[in-house]
Amino acid sequence: MMTRSVLPILTVVMAIVALWYGGAVLMNKRWTMDQAARAGVELSLAEVVADTLSQDRPKLPAPHQVITELWNTTGAKVLEGRAFSKRSLIFHGWITLSATLLGFAIGTGLGIALAVGIVHNRAMDMSVMPWAIASQTIPILAIAPMIIVVLNSIGVQGLLPKAIISAYLSFFPVVVGMVKGLRSPDAMQLDLMRTYSASGTQVFSMLRLPSSMPYLFTSLKVGMAASLVGAIVGELPTGAIRGLGARLLAGSYYGQTVQIWSALFAAAILAATLVGLIGLIQRITLKRMGMAR
């Protein structure tokens, strides 16, 4: 399955890169032409293409420009021994990552706790569950700026406000997924536990918790992606100082397109790594539990 897909995936990726280069030439052509007309020179096609792919502030930076910028702000900084300088994406990425992980841990922990409560208490289930489901249909990300500013005005700054946003964004998917998972054992299995005269705790730890694992991991992936988005958006209202979101905003203030794209790619790499990591843990855990498909 994996090897069969390698060629098609490579083809698609190559096509995207080719489209990207084509788009870069087309979108940056205007600027090159204007400059040439102002200087009063005629440019050959090769010169136009070469110029569109190496502008300082292109409308669409070429892939190699973004990769160069990424390397200059990460690997090159490490080689210089200044991995945590303010111009390094490792520094900004770490700021965002720490808020993401703290918020994710808080949100997941509380989410699992609430899910356990919902499964074991009917009043809680009937009053809270409809709201948890409804929360998935409303853009709760919109209250992020308010949380930052309000917490700032009572003196809480830095990591915690962003972590709170990440936490509540990952909270609801985990609650909904975990409730589904804890309810996934069917009546037959529950009856079997009953015939063993298992106590409530035993049913929970030996049947409900293990069978909820596939659902938990699926919602953990959703929650992790949401946490990262929350941390990035949480960095916007503070005036763009630190973090990947701040790099995006600063880049858009000063028209530094290459910086925006490199921050975007750093965020994408971070998201892919985090979600991939959860996928790996999922595969190992489910395999050891004998639940791998």
Binding site: L10, A225, I232, L244, A268, V275
Partner: peptide, 17 residues
């Protein structure tokens, strides 16, 4: 076979950026 994994990958990224 090529687009699905790429699409799945992109769907998990912070596109809002």
């Amino acid at each position: 076979r090529g687009l699905l994994p790429v699409g799945n990958f992109i769907a998990a990224l912070p596109i809002i950026g």
